[in-house]
Design a protein around this nucleic acid. Sequence first.
DNA 1: AAATAATGTAAAGTTTGCTTGACATTATAA
DNA 2: TTATAATGTCAAGCAAACTTTACATTATTT
Lengths: 64, 64
Amino acid sequence: MKNVLKVLRARNDWSQEVLSNKLGVSRQTINAIERGKYDPSLPLAFKIARLFGTSIEDIFEFSE
Amino acid sequence: MKNVLKVLRARNDWSQEVLSNKLGVSRQTINAIERGKYDPSLPLAFKIARLFGTSIEDIFEFSE
DNA sequence: AAATAATGTAAAGTTTGCTTGACATTATAA
DNA sequence: TTATAATGTCAAGCAAACTTTACATTATTT
């Protein structure tokens, strides 16, 4: 699954640490998601979408 | 997190087992999600939304 | 160039999603 | 009413998401 988290984060000029704090997760979790090491949980995906004022589908692209 | 999975499934007249087969998960997983025992992973949420031809946000309601 | 900030990565541990197998309960059909 | 289908639930186990700690590498300032 691809995602544009890094783009959205850059657009807001936030470091991974700042973003992780806003979301209540660790910096490593943000790093892992951005680098595609794993997908976020559904609750975290909702938090991310809410923070950036968009939909889950606009941030994450599901691929079989 | 609330969801309307049971409603969508009923609308299609599918049993939990039939739905689980269509999604490639176990019947117990469907049962647990419908009963709110836990949330699906993000990939599974995408599969569910795709199967019912709607968005994740229209099926799952995030609450804190 | 040196200091600092940001990012990448790894190991070990906890929690959550999901599995199989088994059995109990409830609804539907014969 | 008896059989069968559907749903609920539990236990044990595996895998994925996430944590903390720690350190290495890459950018960015000063």
